[in-house]
Design a protein around this nucleic acid. Structure first.
Lengths: 125, 125
DNA sequence: CAGAATCCACTGTGATACTG
DNA sequence: CAGTATCACAGTGGATTCTG
């Protein structure tokens, strides 16, 4: 039994952006979407190289993003084969979100690092 | 050896918002920050109830957020004891990010769900 | 090159029980 | 009430190998 079932809590009522967060900020999804939103179509191996992700997880995430309509796959049955991934219009609609995050990073991330350094309580690092 | 070390890829160069994403969108952090940014100080047990999280994980995340300066803890050594958590100024600086996410959710999440429903390729659901 | 398939190690998560 | 401690489990990610 999950904690939610036990307590009868409603996570969605508590935080309405959680579904989007699960979608957009799971492992590897952000770097993929960010990279594709910055450049044109990118080959599979090139994504692998730039992000430092292994083929397996990259494939998993790309399939998921394709299913969700955020990324489009173009396959060319050449020899050797070529697969290019491109962001969709729906994917581009994330620009304001990413822009807000990038600005927050520039403005406030240093303050976080400073707070972390001067923190003395429990919890290592 | 990690994939990054193997390939010599630089994740930060590939995606400059990743550090902020790790900070803000790890499990439970978003609901915590969202909840605290919407109301005043909230008691520990009340957070537990609203989010449906168990005490253990909640404590872990709250300590981390406190260390990073996003949340402040107020402890009252009464009987029974009381602990209240409140968002900090730094935490409040996230408002534009959350607002952008909430707007994207309203505008585009339905399109994602539609794409998912009409998706026929591999990958279940 | 693109990716599927296997195996494995690790971590996060949660349930539970306990303390002040 | 507000945690801490312990244990067990599942899911994820990664390394490796193989195919068209």
């Amino acid at each position: 039994m999950t904690a939610t079932e036990r307590t009868g809590a409603d996570p969605l009522a508590a935080c309405r952006i959680s579904p989007a967060v699960d979608l957009l900020f799971s492992r590897w999804t952000t770097p993929i979407l960010w990279t594709l939103s910055q450049s044109g179509p990118v080959r599979f191996v090139e994504l692998e190289r730039r992000l430092g992700a292994t083929g397996k997880v990259l494939t998993q995430r790309l399939r998921q993003l394709e299913r969700d309509g955020l990324v489009q796959r173009h396959y060319y049955a050449e020899v050797p084969p070529r697969a290019e991934y491109e962001i969709t219009e729906l994917g581009r609609s994330l620009s304001p979100v990413f822009a807000a995050l990038a600005e927050w990073t520039d403005e406030h991330l240093p303050a976080v690092e400073q707070a972390r350094d001067s923190y003395t309580g429990p919890l290592p690092r």
